[in-house]
Design a protein around this nucleic acid. Structure first.
Lengths: 121, 121
DNA sequence: AATCGTTATATTTTCATCGATATAGCCAAT
DNA sequence: ATTGGCTATATCGATGAAAATATAACGATT
């Protein structure tokens, strides 16, 4: 894959408060209304998705995702107002970073091989 | 640790072409004139440092680090012109990103707990 | 009340990554 | 020639992370 990608994460101590994976998951939960549906949609185990949500919620003063137990219409999960706000800021950071670093990025890119190393470390 | 940190990496396929660790190592090699000295200085095993250098060199069309075998004045490693250029761009990206995302960053920060979760995932 | 699809969590197992260790070759200085 | 400090690389084991599996509780729908 020649896909070039910059990612960034906001760390609080050893924990990733939010990063590319958590942002996508958050978005998926907002779209689907459930942790498990979002996990399925992005081909992630429910367990993993739940752990990510748990970490996110514990990193912030208030939860980004509110979940209700029960299924078949009863249960589900919604992204909170804070969740939407954080997600918005994260996407903005992505967008602004992309535009602010475009030139340097292009310069670096022009020096990269188009054949990625097979045994990277 | 309440230290907040954003990091970013440039990925080419599965490999990290350059990221915070590789940038620091590159800088260290430029400063010390040797892979092993740089590794020692940043408390990294020589093996690991060498692997990182190897990956960097293979991600780019031309090496970022040029090494000569032999020791005691004979051997050593220098950062190449390309290496210096890439490092410069990377630092610039860090700087520009920081200034471009300051507001969003502060907004997110204000919602983080000051007690990082102990078992993050 | 039976069921389905959730959230929530513990336990076990598998797997990948990393570190430690070892070895070889090289070159200038002594 | 011997040594010291470096590059370069292979191998093995431990450690830790992720996945798989299992289970429980819950609540709207039927």
């Amino acid at each position: 894959m020649i896909a070039l990608k910059t990612t960034f994460r906001i760390l609080i101590g050893p924990a990733i408060a939010i990063g590319p994976g958590k942002a996508d998951l958050l978005e998926g939960i907002g779209r689907t209304g459930s942790i498990s549906a979002a996990a399925r949609a992005m081909n992630m185990s429910y367990r993993r998705a739940w752990l990510l949500v748990d970490t996110m919620n514990r990193c912030f003063k208030q939860p980004l995702v509110a979940a209700q137990t029960g299924g078949k219409g009863g249960g589900g999960a919604q992204i909170t107002d804070l969740g939407r706000e954080i997600l918005h800021h994260y996407r903005e950071m992505e967008r602004k970073t992309l535009s602010a670093t475009g030139e340097d990025m292009a310069a670096i890119r022009s020096h990269l091989t188009d054949t990625p190393p097979e045994n990277p470390h």
